[in-house]
Structure formats: C-alpha cells, structure tokens
Amino acid sequence: MRLTLKIWRQSDADATGTMVGYQVDDADEDMSFLELLDVLNEKLILSGDEPVAFDHDCREGICGSCSMVINGHPHGPQKATTACQLHLRHFRDGETITIEPWRAAAFPVIKDLVVDRSAFDRIIQAGGYVSVPTGAAPDAHATPVPKVHADRAFTAAACIGCGACVAACPNGSGSLFLGAKITHLGELPQGQPERDGRVVRMVEQHDAEGFGGCTNTGACTVSCPKEIPLDVISQLNHDYIAATSGRGRIA
C-alpha cells in the first residue's frame, strides 16, 4: 500500500509545531498503525532526519500509552480499538492520513505526538484509591459483593487512562476518566468509607488541572477504546451532589 501521512512535528514543549507530509510506499495491510510509524521512522533515521516521537509500549491495547489522533479520531476511526491495535487494512491504498497529538491544555505536547498526561496521575492522587495499608486487610470473603455491583465496578475499572476521552471532548473534559474511577470504587463496599471525600477532592483536582466541564456530548464514550459507558459521568455527578449537599454518608 502507498500512504501519505501528515504528521504533527514539534521539536519540544516550547516550539511551535507544524504538520509535515511524508510518503510511505511499502505499507502492508497486515501492519498495525504503529508499525507504519516504525517503518517511516526507519526511513527517516537512515536519511538523516529525526524520527517521529510517539508514546507506545504494550502494543496490545491495555497499557494506555499510545495516544494519537488519526484523521480526527482519537486512536483512529475503528470502534473500541487503540492505535496500536488498529491495522492498515482499514485504510485505502493511496489514502492521506492525518496524525496529531492529543489536544488539551491539561495534556501539553512534549514532542511530536508525545503529550504529558501526568494530570491523570494527580487526579488519582486526590483520592482515587482505598486507604488500606498492606497487611490491614480482612479475609477476602469477609464482605460479599453482589455480582451486579462487582460487574459494574469492573466495567468502569477497565479504563486504561489513555486520555482519548479528553482528546475527543470539545471541552477538553476528563469527566469520563474521573467518572470511571468514581464508579469503580463507589460500586464496591470497600470504597464506601471514603466515597464522599473522594469525589469532592477528585473533582476539584480535575478542574485545577485545567480540564473543561462536561456538556454531555458523549464524544468521549464514542472514542473510548474500552467503551466506558456515559453512565459513569452520571454516577460522578450523582455522587458529587450527594457529597456536597450534605446527603452524603461521611463528609
């Protein structure tokens, strides 16, 4: 396959970037999208240019490293698929493909397609955990968890923290990520004692990081490679109202 790539190049955080066009003549439809970039980079290196920097690691759709907007879609147009698992057979021979980094103020570009997503870590630091020091746990069967709750917690916990939701959101909101953690821990009995404080602190941290507010457009869930449902944002809102209106369990 022959593909034309238009890629965002930016040499460092302070530089002004630009879209640069490249031609790859020997792409193969069995290649993954990142392998296409590998092929391009090999050529660039041998011709004395700097290769395109992009985050990637597991290449099996679970680590959440890869982060690129392909033809305007975070992780590309294929549903429930990260860029690393997107294969070229979904593109046409001769197609021009635009590749950009996640765009959000809270995710500043470090270089080319690499962005700084440490804001997500700090949101978790604000309360995305259960305070249980090692060794302090009761027997695992001490507290049964109804299967529906366990399953809903799991669905939310499947979030890989890639940031596609933010990249897709017209408001640059991290609500889907935030809601996923709130729902995961809020569905489980182990998460109850800290439930109210957690949601208040995490929402404040989310805003302090410069993420925008949610306008319920649903763009996030469409782009989410793990198909985290929009429900988690409703749950986030519900918990926040409960916690701040005094209807909460423990302040």
């Binding site: 959000a104 103020a105 897709a168 017209p170 408001n171 640059g172 993420f211 925008g212 457009t217 763009a219």
Partner: peptide
C-alpha cells in the same frame, strides 16, 4: 470559556463527531 481554555488548539482533521453537533 473554560472549555475554550481547556481545548486551545483545534485538530487539523475535523470529521463529523457526535460531540460537535450537540455543542
């Protein structure tokens, strides 16, 4: 205004997305 600050740079490729319609 917060949303505009949170998403200061537009994408070069802008396909029709469900988000843009509602917004």
């Amino acid at each position: 205004r917060r949303a505009a600050r949170a998403r200061p740079v537009r994408y070069a490729a802008t396909p029709k997305t469900p988000g843009s319609y509602a917004a």
